[in-house]
């Protein structure tokens, strides 16, 4: 089983390379659709046609597209992601500073969603078809239909402006002051977590309903084990298969949600960086950011696949 799993992981990781290549090539092509803009931006009032052409040559923007891409790729392999046209900041350094912000946002949001979704899902499975179940399901559907941006605005109004409980924007790095950091992340995390818990709850609920019917649960009950123990210890693990898949899907959605939330709350994360880079035609930064986001996204999918393989009941329960 060990080497099979390793081969499986290896194959998937290899798959990563062509995907990243294609995605970055596409970004590069998209970015290059507007060649003149970068030079014009940088020259501003100096942007005479002669100067624009000269700067384009200096930056290598007049090279054929595949050459530019090859140069960038070559730099990538040596760890040089290039330097932002706009700020002169090395792209890798910018990403390194911004990645922790986005990672923290997504991790806390997913944890928050789990903290809400798992108990509520189990509750619904245990109290199937009662008023509680219907209420929670209705709530789940409701939250699924809320765009995170609207939730962000409403939460800001009540929690920040009206009641002054949380700061409305701004970011304090974790290293500086952990408590202030958590406070500054609270509203963004809530805006995402409240929207992401429904799929988790619902999938867990439907899976647990199946599990709870199985023989080994009846056995546990016959043995006299407490209901809570049954729920948490015996029923949760087999039901977590689909849950893991949904978490993977969630994380994909979270990336998009994180971008909007970062823009709304002014968090200096990767999402905000991508938006700014697109709007200011800072293609070097955009490409570097896309590489990271793509890598992250694909790695998450691979991890989910792996967990799926590990948790597969056919493997776990064998033929028993």
């Amino acid at each position: 089983m060990g080497w099979r799993l390793a081969a499986f992981i290896g194959r998937r990781l290899l798959y990563l390379i062509p995907i990243v290549l294609v995605v970055t090539a596409l970004t590069s092509a998209l970015g290059a659709m507007l060649p003149g803009d970068v030079a014009v931006s940088m020259l501003g009032t100096q942007a005479t046609p002669a100067k624009v052409a000269a700067l384009q040559h200096q930056l290598g923007l007049d090279l054929p597209l595949w050459r530019q891409y090859a140069n960038w790729l070559g730099g990538l392999i040596t760890g040089d992601f290039g330097v932002s046209y706009r700020t002169g900041e090395p792209v890798l350094s910018a990403i390194a500073q911004r990645l922790p912000v986005t990672a923290e946002l997504m991790a806390l949001a997913e944890l928050g969603a789990l903290a809400l979704g798992v108990p509520l899902g189990m509750l619904c499975a245990a109290r199937r078809d009662t008023a509680v179940d219907r209420l929670v399901t209705a709530g789940a559907f409701g939250m699924l239909s809320m765009p995170p941006y609207l939730l962000a605005v409403v939460l800001t109004y009540f929690l920040a402006v009206l009641w002054g409980v949380l700061p409305s924007s701004g970011y304090v790095p974790l290293a500086d002051a952990p408590l202030a950091n958590l406070r500054s992340m609270a509203l963004p995390v809530l805006s995402l977590a409240l929207v992401e818990w429904p799929p988790l709850a619902r999938v867990l609920r439907s899976d647990m309903i199946t599990t709870l019917r199985q023989d080994f649960v009846l056995m546990a009950r016959a043995k006299g084990l407490s209901p809570l123990r049954i729920l948490f210890v015996h029923a949760l693990k087999p039901s977590s298969l689909a849950l893991v898949t949904v978490i993977g899907l969630n994380l994909g959605r979270l990336i998009g949600g994180a971008v909007i939330v970062e823009v709304i709350f002014g968090l200096p994360g990767i999402g905000q960086m991508l938006v700014d880079a697109t709007l200011t035609r800072d293609f070097i930064t955009l490409q570097g950011g896309v590489v990271f986001v793509t890598l992250g996204f694909v790695l998450i999918n691979i991890t989910v696949d792996m967990l799926y393989a590990v948790l597969d009941p056919r493997v776990r329960h064998g033929s028993a």
Binding site: T156, A160, V161, G164, P167, S168, S169, G170, I264, F265, G266
Partner: peptide, 10 residues
């Protein structure tokens, strides 16, 4: 956000 921040004292 700017306005909310100055009103909240952030």
């Amino acid at each position: 956000a700017r306005m909310a921040a100055v009103r909240a004292g952030d």
